[in-house]
Structures are given as structure tokens and as C-alpha cells.
């Protein structure tokens, strides 16, 4: 749109448009770099970069010497994010219900403040806590018992060798994405018109029946929170790298150490310059993360728009 109005407005428009374009330019540059720098590896290895499991850095370029398959890292990202979202959905729904319907006004304030406090906490702090406390605790009290009693279930079939596993990463991520999901669900919950809420109360519903009705009304928002939470969980780096164990494993067992895409990049990027195509393979990982992020976030936002009253 061309600005209408005086010549002065015209100057204001264009002098502001320049810095504004920088913000857009950053995003475009990001897409261009990830795409441009990952193309070489796709040129040599093709799409099997995403579907093979071998990671073999070497001075001889692929396919003869080295090979860079990202599948284990993609698998680790997906598994840890699914565990995180599963738990965080239950926890954040409970929190929204308590904040909105159960707690007294004073406690409501306290709960909200704590949720905000969690939302902005530096992720590396979650990471060191996860590494030193959460991992060993889960290993002793959850993973070991589950493995020794229920090892016939594929999820629990492998023995946890340390506290650093996909499972630990999933649990830590769930703690980290709860405040984010609470914010999305809460916003929609508050948007339910008072008249509907009052009508429900006037029918003599119990709190359980009333909350169930309300939750049903904001289902798209919950779906959206799930997707956006998944996006957050899959892109987390510092905390996950400290607790996920960082080794190339793939399989249904969640008690084994693994890589996620972001932890693979964090761990191997600096050395990657020494080997031909290795850095490009890591950029291909970054591109995968970007694409996953764009897909889940777009669908999430579409769902969020479906909440209408």
C-alpha cells in the first residue's frame, strides 16, 4: 500500500520501512543460508541424508568414505518432543483449570506469577538441574523400576545406563514447555463468553461437568497448544544437549541415550569444519528443524484461529 497524505508522511513511511525490512531480511537470510549450505550434502548423498542411520565422519568425502545420516537425530527429536507434549498437555490443562476455576483470587495471582517465572528461566539452568538432579532421580525411581518390572513393553525394554536418556529429555522439556502451553490455553479459556459460563452454572453443573464443557469448547486451542508446544520442544538446544545422552541410537526404547537434531549440531558443529560435507550435513539438520518448525507452527496458528465464539 502506498501511504496517502502529505509529503511528510511519505518521508516517515520510507525512513521507517528501511529498519522494518531488516527484520524480514533476517528471516529470509536464515532460510537462504540453511538451504544454500545444506544443498551440497543433498547433492552427494541425496535425500538418504534424512533416511539413513549411519554417521561416519571421514576425510574421504561421501559416499565412499564418510556418510552423514540424520535419521537417529530426527527420531530423537520426535520422541523427546512427543513425550514432552504428552505430559505437558495434562499438566498445563490442570494448571489452567486451577488458575481459572479452583484457586482463590490471591492464589490465582501467585500461580500465574510462577508460571511466568518458569517461562523466562534461562534454559541452561534447566539443563544443569536436569543433568545433576532430574536424570539420576528419574533413573533410580522411575526408569530402573519400570525396566525391571515391565521390560516386556518395548518402550522400557532397554536398561538405563545413566540418567541421560530420551526419557529424561522428554520430562525436562515438558517442564519447560508447560508455561508456554498454559499461556495459549488460558487465553482461549478466558475468551469463552460469560453468558455461556453462567448458563452452565445455572443448570446446576458440578465443577467437573462445567470444566469438561468449557474444555470441549476450546478444543482447537488445545490442539494448537499441543502443536506449538511440540515446536518449542523440538527446537530446544542447551537443556536437551545436557540430558539426552548424545549418542546415535534409534528404536522404540525410551531409556537409551540419543541425539536430537539440535544437540547433534551443538556437539559436532565446531569439529565439522575439518571434514568435507560434515558441516553441510549439520546445516541439513538445521533445515529439517526449520521445516518441522514452520509446519507445526503454521498448523498450530490455523487451529488457534478456529476458536470462535
Amino acid at each position: 500500500m502506498r501511504p496517502k497524505g502529505s509529503r511528510h508522511d511519505f518521508i516517515v513511511f520510507y525512513s521507517l520501512a528501511a529498519p522494518t525490512s531488516i527484520v524480514v531480511l533476517i528471516l529470509l537470510l536464515m532460510l537462504a543460508t540453511q538451504l544454500g549450505l545444506s544443498l551440497p550434502v543433498f547433492g552427494v548423498q541425496g535425500l538418504s541424508t534424512l533416511t539413513t542411520t549411519i554417521w561416519r565422519p571421514s576425510y574421504t568425502p561421501p559416499p565412499d568414505g564418510a556418510w552423514y545420516g540424520l535419521l537417529p537425530a530426527i527420531w530423537g527429536t520426535m520422541t523427546s518432543a512427543v513425550i514432552a507434549v504428552f505430559l505437558a498437555t495434562i499438566l498445563s490443562l490442570s494448571l489452567v483449570v486451577v488458575i481459572e476455576e479452583v484457586a482463590s483470587r490471591r492464589f490465582r495471582e501467585v500461580f500465574s506469577t510462577i508460571v511466568d517465572l518458569m517461562a523466562g528461566m534461562p534454559t541452561v539452568i534447566f539443563g544443569v538441574w536436569g543433568l545433576a538432579f532430574l536424570g539420576p532421580t528419574l533413573e533410580k525411581w522411575i526408569m530402573d523400576p519400570l525396566h525391571s518390572h515391565l521390560s516386556f513393553i518395548p518402550l522400557f525394554s532397554c536398561e538405563p545406563l545413566s540418567g541421560a536418556t530420551v526419557f529424561t529429555a522428554g520430562i525436562l522439556l515438558s517442564v519447560m514447555i508447560v508455561p508456554f502451553m498454559v499461556a495459549i490455553i488460558q487465553e482461549s479459556y478466558r475468551a469463552i463468553p460469560m453468558t455461556l459460563k453462567e448458563a452452565a452454572w445455572s443448570l446446576g453443573m458440578t465443577r467437573y461437568e462445567y470444566v469438561k464443557l468449557n474444555i470441549n469448547m476450546i478444543k482447537p486451542a488445545i490442539a494448537s497448544a499441543l502443536l506449538l508446544g511440540f515446536g518449542r520442544a523440538s527446537s530446544e538446544t542447551a537443556a536437551v544437549t545436557l540430558v539426552v545422552g548424545n549418542s546415535f541410537n534409534i528404536g522404540y526404547c525410551i531409556f537409551q541415550p540419543a541425539y536430537t537434531i539440535s544437540s547433534l549440531i551443538a556437539n559436532q558443529f565446531t569439529e565439522a569444519q575439518d571434514f568435507p560435507y560434515m558441516m553441510n550435513a549439520l546445516f541439513a539438520g538445521g533445515l529439517t528443524l526449520l521445516v518441522i518448525g514452520i509446519i507445526v507452527n503454521s498448523i498450530g496458528i490455523i487451529y488457534l484461529r478456529r476458536v470462535r465464539f
Partner: peptide
């Protein structure tokens, strides 16, 4: 440009920060 920059900013909020490092 406003629509574009809002979308860009929203995307930047969601992008993995390690990708910022790579850029």
C-alpha cells in the same frame, strides 16, 4: 510490509536459537 514483518517476527520467535547461531 506490516503483515510481512509481523509474520517474520512471529517466525523468529519460534525459530530454534541454534539456527540463529548457524546463520
Amino acid at each position: 510490509l506490516t503483515h510481512v514483518v509481523r509474520a517474520a517476527s512471529r517466525s523468529l520467535l519460534e525459530v530454534a536459537t541454534i539456527i540463529v547461531g548457524m546463520l
